[in-house]
Design a protein around this nucleic acid. Structure first.
Lengths: 312, 312
DNA sequence: ATAAATTTATAAAAACTATCGATAAAACTT
DNA sequence: AAGTTTTATCGATAGTTTTTATAAATTTAT
């Protein structure tokens, strides 16, 4: 049994197809097929059922694949251990970022980071919290940036900053006359929300839920804050924005912003990574960079953190 | 990087010597040396310092060895997973047993087990609780039989039976006139103890400690109960025996036995194994066999369990 | 301090194996 | 039923592991 064989098995399990798996593994299909067969012979068990297409994984195969993932990930770590021992900051590093943080935070730190650590090949993926967690678990991501607390057993959360919610209240809205917003005054039924899957949506729902029994009526939903702001201008209601999105609005729109009373509700944005601490040295370097650039742009201390997780 | 290379590294780390490591790995010394070198080249780090003899492990090497242990153990598990999936009970299985249990328990179940599961190559090692725990951790043992509770994070304890302590009180002893023993009446200073390292010794000390402040005076100490009984007969004090040892005494000596008041103090004997549950199917088979033979010989319910761990 | 013994490294040859390209066989699609 | 897609098989080749033989280095004994 070799690590290569296990990697081939994982590739087949992932792509459910020998030919594609071979391509992704940068070998020819016979090479991969034979190695998988060899492993099956050695273990004397079928891992894949090739009698139908697409191929399926046998019961024994599922367990073998799970264990193989383990082994391959642990094997990868040896290289990381050596790098860490040498103090070398380099190699591939994959970071997942939730969509509502990506456009505002990424431009703030990306340039600084790649300048400071040119040997790191940073791969950035935009994905929602759920897939972020899944990818952290199976090792497809080295770290993620998401709203916390998530309270997940195998994940370490290191808060980066606290980002208050800001109201965008068009002139026609009933709350326009108020000086400051309060969570109690909000009515979930006239707040424009992001579409499902965004944790910022959950945050807003949780914020309003504190004083209302929210029944899931139909709401206009969009994937971008820009759309929400435009819809709000059309008189379809108000919306809530994260602070960093709010400060980026043009002057005309900024006049529609309404801040919350102290302490404002806020989301906690954290760097999250697997407790196994793969590539911890790079993760720490990344955290340092982000923390230092954020320190200038955002400095809220006394906030009320709103959970990003659905409370159902 | 291959699993074989990691195994070679582990062998060198274990034996601190390339030649011996090669023998134990059933390859020639150059084979092993070259593979270790190849891995060092690939990782671009020295794992072993060969400039002095015996060779030593570098700082980076220590971490690599720890991780390699992980990987190799996890790799071994794949075979176990397949066996388990097939319901196959076979292969090598290594069991550690503490010295004070070995001579009485092993004859009771060994024959039954090897008859029932002839494909299992059972390797039995006598060792004290400390090395048992260490060997379970690094995978040198598949399971152990020891006095519990040990309360160790990575170990599962499955109680097999409860074995009361029985007093061996020679005619000349002050407690001879008592009908039943009570823990309060015991005086640690005239009890003959097993030598250090036996957990039964710790159990006796804990039993007496409940009512006495034990200061570590000099005591006669022996490694076998037979010696203790003979010393007791010479008038050097009394001693305590586990129930199964007591019932094996000849008739003449049995007349010196004195039982405890209900509920008698007892030790809990458990099958212990790593939480990772390597070869769980064999472990369960073993537990079944032992539990069934023990059920006939020993059936105490209402006992007071004495900790086998030093309370200092 | 020098010789002997032990231990690790190096080199060349042999055995073995992973990989590839070509092609056959099987399964699915139209 | 023909064509397409996917997996298996085959022979050739390049590369790797292993071995035997031997050299170099280190430790131990005299």
């Amino acid at each position: 049994m070799t690590i290569t064989q296990l990697q081939y098995v994982l590739a087949v399990a992932e792509y459910q197809n020998f030919t594609v798996a071979a391509e992704k593994s940068f070998v020819t299909q016979p090479t991969l097929s034979m190695q998988v067969q060899k492993l099956e012979d050695e273990l004397d068990v079928r891992i894949f059922d090739r009698s139908k297409k697409p191929i399926s994984i046998t019961e024994a195969g599922k367990k073998i694949v799970a264990q193989a993932k383990n082994i391959v990930n642990e094997a990868k770590r040896i290289k990381d251990i050596v790098d860490q021992e040498k103090g070398y900051i380099g190699g591939e590093y994959t970071l997942g970022i939730i969509p509502t943080v990506m456009p505002t935070l990424l431009p703030m730190f990306l340039k600084t980071f790649i300048n400071k650590y040119p040997k790191v090949n940073l791969v950035i993926r935009e994905q929602n919290t759920d897939s972020l967690i899944r990818n952290l678990q199976d090792g497809h991501l080295d770290a993620g940036i998401a709203a916390t607390p998530l309270d997940i057993e195998f994940i370490t959360e290191r808060p980066l900053y606290y980002e208050p919610f800001v109201g965008y209240v068009p002139p026609s809205h009933r709350l326009r006359k108020e000086d400051k917003l309060s969570p109690e005054a909000l009515d979930i039924r006239d707040i424009l929300l992001l579409e499902d899957g965004h944790c910022f949506r959950e945050g807003v729902v949780n914020l309003c839920k504190a004083n209302q029994n929210f029944e899931d009526h139909f709401h206009l939903q969009s994937g971008s804050f820009e759309t929400l702001v435009n819809l709000a201008n059309e008189g379809l209601g108000m919306t809530l924005l994260p602070y960093l999105n709010a400060v980026e609005l043009d002057e005309r729109k900024k006049s529609n912003l309404k801040y919350f009373q102290e302490p404002p509700p806020a989301r906690e944005i954290s760097l999250i990574y697997h407790k196994k601490e793969l590539k911890l040295h790079i993760t720490n370097a990344l955290r340092e960079v982000i923390a230092s650039v954020v320190r200038g742009a955002i400095k809220f201390q006394d906030v009320k953190i709103i959970s990003p997780v659905s409370q159902n």
